[in-house]
């Protein structure tokens, strides 16, 4: 983890209520895909944790959904705006487990953290399949970006307006993945957990206080004891997940 100031380069909408922001600065603390950064926005007390979509040299790409007052303010940030940022938080995905045929499954704004992972895995010569799930076609993003990396891309929408109609689990047919990497809403994670048997790494989301393990705000129970989603997570392996209820 490193505290640093990042400078906004671009900030633009890429889908309905979804923005892509690029920031430049010291990204040396980002060591794995699936990690996140924690942004201090003017006028808001708590930082905003957002997963790393891409980090190349000194350019960071984040994708965020405008859902509340903080992200609405952030959507108004222009080029040159400086943001105090904690960089390189969380454990991230472990690429070592990928095998030859990794499957990446993202739901909504759970798609972005899989991009840097896909980039690394395709560069390592893996045959990567990416299933990207959305509610409707207005919300679809990054289909072409994943395709450009050489991934076999399957898009699903709940209303069938783009790609396969239904949920991401409706696009699993014919696949025999060596490892599942996923991020998205918890019901989606749970459905994937049940629909697959291969080794899996699941990235969870929780409301956080600090984002670096101090406040115990995002603790969850796992098979191997209590874990802080911000610190021992956000990525949990299949064998440690304990579904509540």
């Amino acid at each position: 983890m490193k505290q640093t100031v990042l400078t906004v380069q671009t900030n633009e909408p890429i889908a309905k209520n979804v923005m892509k922001i690029t920031l430049s600065g010291d990204l040396s603390a980002i060591v794995r895909p699936g990690q996140f950064v924690n942004l201090k926005l003017d006028g808001f007390y708590l930082r905003r944790p957002i997963s790393v979509c891409d980090a190349e040299g000194d350019l960071l790409t984040l994708i965020y959904k405008v859902v509340g007052e903080g992200t609405r303010a952030m959507a108004g940030y222009g080029k040159g705006k400086k943001i105090d940022c904690l960089v390189g938080l969380g454990n991230g995905y472990d690429e070592k487990d990928a095998g030859d045929r990794p499957l990446l499954v993202g739901g909504g704004v759970g798609v972005p953290p899989l991009y840097l992972l896909a980039k690394r895995l395709t560069a390592a010569g893996k045959r990567v399949t990416a299933i990207l799930g959305f509610n409707t076609k207005d919300e679809v993003f990054f289909e072409n970006e994943f395709r450009a990396l050489g991934c076999d891309v399957r898009v699903t929408t709940v209303d069938g307006s783009c790609g396969t109609r239904g949920f991401v689990t409706d696009a699993l047919h014919g696949l025999d993945p060596t490892c599942l990497y996923t991020c998205g809403p918890e019901p989606m994670l749970r459905a994937l957990y049940r629909a697959t048997t291969c080794p899996g790494q699941f990235s969870f989301e929780r409301r956080m206080g600090c984002g670096f393990g101090a406040c115990m705000g995002c603790t969850c129970k796992t098979i191997t004891g209590n874990k802080r989603i911000c610190r021992e997570g956000p990525v949990l392996k299949r064998e440690e997940i304990l579904w509540e209820n």
Binding site: Y45, R206, R207, G209, C215, M216, G217, C218, T219
Partner: peptide, 30 residues
């Protein structure tokens, strides 16, 4: 960190909320 006799998991999440110029926590002595 506040220490009790027995281990405590604490409260259900969400445990944190933002407020104007501050925050609420309900960690519950984990």
């Amino acid at each position: 960190k506040g220490t009790t006799a027995a281990p405590r998991f604490g409260n259900e999440t969400p445990r944190i909320a933002e407020t104007p110029a501050g925050m609420l926590n309900a960690v519950g002595l984990q």
